[in-house]
Design a protein around this nucleic acid. Structure first.
Lengths: 260, 260
DNA sequence: GAATGTGAATTGTTTCACAGCA
DNA sequence: TGCTGTGAAACAATTCACATTC
C-alpha cells in the first residue's frame, strides 16, 4: 500500500470497513471502463477480474453498500457507478489546492485523473515569489502569503502538499488552521494534525523500498548465502562503538557493523 | 493506502508480515533523521512518535527482525539503520528504469528521494521519438524501441511505469519479458503479470477519492439529510432504463437514478 | 527503574461455502 | 440454473499487559 492514514478512530465510518473504502475507487474505475464500452451488466466474477481482486471479496464489499445486484444476473453497470460515486462523495465537486509547485506539484496540476473525478484544482500555491503569476496547467500560481484567503474564498477542504519535507508541517498547520480537513501528503515527513483531520500519504521512495525488499528475497537464499560468506557491495561497514557483539537476527549472527 | 499489491502469495516473506515490511521504510526514515542529528539511542516510544505509529506496534515489528534493542535503554540508532537497510535490501544498488517521460515521469526522474536510498535511475524511456536524446534530470531519454536492450545491459529488475493508461500493459509485458520482476505502476490500470512478478501501484486519484469519502462523512449526517431532502449539486440524474426501482441501500431507499 | 520482547486477547480482513432469489 | 448476499471459518494485524533483562 502506497498509503496510510494518520489519526482517526479505527471505527468503521458508517459501517463500511476501511479496506472496503480503499477498494471502492478501484471498482469505480473498472466500472467506468465498462460503462464507456456500453456494457449493461456485469457479474461479480467479471468485475472482480477487471478490478484485480477476487470475486468473494468484491461481493462482500458491495454487501456493505447495500443490495445492488440481481441474483442470477449480476450488477447493472450504470447503477453501480452511481451508487459507488455517491458513496465516495464524488457526486459533488471538491475544490482542491496544491501547495508546492515544483516538479511534482506541477505534474499533479497537469494530471488529468483529478479533474475526471469531481476534483477541481482550485488553486496552486508556492512560496517562491518568482513563481507567482506564472501559469501551470493553465492556472496561475499564487503566493503562499495568501494561503488562508485562497482556502476560505474557494471553500477548500482538501489540500495536497507537494513541498519539500521541511516545509510540509508548517504548510499543513496553516492549511488546517484555514479550514482544510483532509490532506494528501507527498512530502516525506510524518505530519501531525489535530483530531478530525485526515492525512493520507504517498511516498514514492517507500514504494520502491517495499519492492526492493521482495526483489531481494526473489534473488534467493543463494544470494543471501553468498553475502554472508563473501564481499558484496554493502556500503563500507565500520566496526560499531558500543556494547553488543552478541546481537542475533533470525538469519544468523550478524557482526556488529553499520554503514559509515 | 495509496497502494496495493497484485499477485503474490499472502505468505509472509521469510516470516516478516507484509504490514511490517510496509512500515520498515518509515522507521528507516525516522532513524535517518535521528542519525543526522547524531542521536545515539532511541526508545521505542520516541521512535514510534517520530514514525507516526504506536510503540507496541513498532516493538512487535522489530521483534520480527531480531533482538536489536537493549532493555532499559532502547535502540542504537546507527545499528538499527543498518539492520533495517539490510533487511530492505538497500545495502545494494538498484538500477531502475522509468518508462513514460511525461509530466509525472519527469517529476519522478527529478525526485531526489530515489537516489538517496540506493535507487539509481539507470534510464529514461519514452515512446515519443521527439523526446529521444533530450536530457531530463540530466539523463538522456531513450526511445522505447530499445527497451529490451536497455533493461538487459543495465541489469534492471525494477521498472517504473508512468505512461498513459493505454500503454501501461504493453509496456509492462515488455518489461517483464526483458527480465524486470518488480514494477511500480503509476498508470491508472490493473496490470496483469505472471507469477513471481511484483506490482505495486500508486494512483493519485484513488487517494483523493478515499479522502473525499471521509470528508463527506465529516460534513455530517446533516448534509446527508439535506441532500436526501432537496437539490444539491449532484450531477444531473436521469431516470434509469432497466428494471429495479426497489433497490435498497443501508441509508434508505434510493431512486433508480444515475449520473448522465 | 526503565524499556524491550512477546505470549495472549482482541480486532479487522479475507476466504469459504452455500442458502436464497431471480 | 446462475449468481448474489452473507453467516461462519480462517487468517492477519494490532493492542494489551507483563515477565524479562539490562
Amino acid at each position: 500500500m502506497a498509503t496510510g492514514r494518520t489519526h482517526r478512530p479505527a471505527t468503521r465510518s458508517r459501517g463500511i470497513p476501511e479496506a472496503t473504502v480503499a477498494r471502492l475507487p478501484l471498482y469505480l474505475r473498472a466500472l467506468t471502463g465498462l460503462s464507456e464500452r456500453s456494457v449493461p451488466t456485469v457479474s461479480s466474477e467479471e468485475l472482480a477480474a477487471a478490478a484485480g481482486v477476487n470475486s468473494a471479496k468484491l461481493r462482500k464489499d458491495f454487501s456493505y453498500l447495500g443490495s445492488y445486484g440481481t441474483r442470477g444476473v449480476g450488477y447493472d453497470v450504470e447503477y453501480l457507478v452511481y451508487q459507488i460515486s455517491r458513496e465516495l462523495g464524488l457526486t459533488q465537486d471538491w475544490p482542491v489546492v496544491i501547495v508546492g509547485i515544483g516538479n511534482l506539484g506541477a505534474a499533479l496540476a497537469n494530471y488529468g485523473g483529478f479533474a475526471s473525478r469531481g476534483f477541481r484544482v482550485a488553486a496552486l500555491i508556492d512560496a517562491d515569489p518568482a513563481m507567482a503569476g506564472k501559469p501551470v496547467a493553465g492556472i496561475p500560481v499564487q503566493h503562499s502569503d495568501d494561503l488562508e484567503k485562497i482556502i476560505s474564498e474557494n471553500g477548500v477542504s482538501i489540500g495536497v502538499i507537494a513541498t519539500p519535507a521541511g516545509a510540509a508541517q508548517p504548510v499543513c498547520d496553516r492549511l488546517v488552521a484555514a479550514g482544510v480537513t483532509s490532506i494528501l501528503n507527498f512530502a516525506p515527513t510524518v505530519l501531525s494534525v489535530p483530531e478530525g483531520v485526515d492525512v493520507r500519504k504517498v511516498d514514492l521512495s517507500i514504494e520502491l523500498q517495499i519492492l526492493a525488499f521482495h526483489e531481494q528475497r526473489k534473488a534467493g537464499e543463494d544470494a543471501a548465502a553468498a553475502e554472508a560468506g563473501g564481499g558484496s557491495e554493502v556500503v563500507t561497514p565500520a566496526v560499531r562503538g558500543g556494547a553488543a557483539v552478541d546481537r542475533k537476527g533470525p538469519d544468523g549472527d550478524m557482526p556488529a557493523v553499520m554503514p559509515a
